[in-house]
Design a protein around this nucleic acid. Structure first.
Length: 129
DNA sequence: AACCTGACGAAGA
DNA sequence: TTCTTCGCCAGGT
């Protein structure tokens, strides 16, 4: 069976409440990774839990779940899943340009709330000598 | 209590 | 660099 996931609810623990609040904070046009949300919520290794919580509470709490992607800057749904098309459509509507079927330049759109200082000069090693 | 799945992720091979 | 393994967390059977 599909084990009706949506019919049940995630207990509103400190962690789940933090996840819900954090996802709501992600600005329009920006994205966050599951691991990033987990870390901000106080459990750096609970990325899977974040996905689980979104699956259970996204609709109920009207969360911008489409703004949460995996660490590679890609949509974590199977490209065949209906959710995949929906998430991609919504992200594109927010101005995110995909560079592949399911992904985009994470560094270009990632929400940097947890980053106090920018610095860093990514520059590709060999643009052209 | 034991074992399984899942919108994850870092480390190895 | 891609594939596999294993650890995490929440919840289901």
């Amino acid at each position: 069976m599909k084990s009706s996931l949506r019919s049940s609810e995630v207990r509103l623990t400190e962690f789940s409440l933090a996840v819900i609040a954090l996802v709501k904070e992600i600005p329009h046009g920006r994205v966050a990774t599951y691991g990033q949300i987990a870390r901000l919520a106080g459990k750096p290794h609970a990325a899977r839990g974040v996905g689980w919580i979104l699956n259970s509470c996204a609709e109920k709490y009207k969360l911008p779940w489409q703004r949460v992607v995996n660490s590679k800057g890609k949509i974590s749904f199977s490209t065949k899943a209906e959710e995949f098309a929906l998430q991609k459509k919504q992200l594109k509507a927010e101005g995110i340009e995909f560079t592949s079927i399911s992904g985009f330049e994470l560094e270009e759109y990632q929400w940097k709330k947890d980053v106090a200082k920018p610095k860093r000069s990514p520059r590709t090693p060999q643009m052209f000598s």
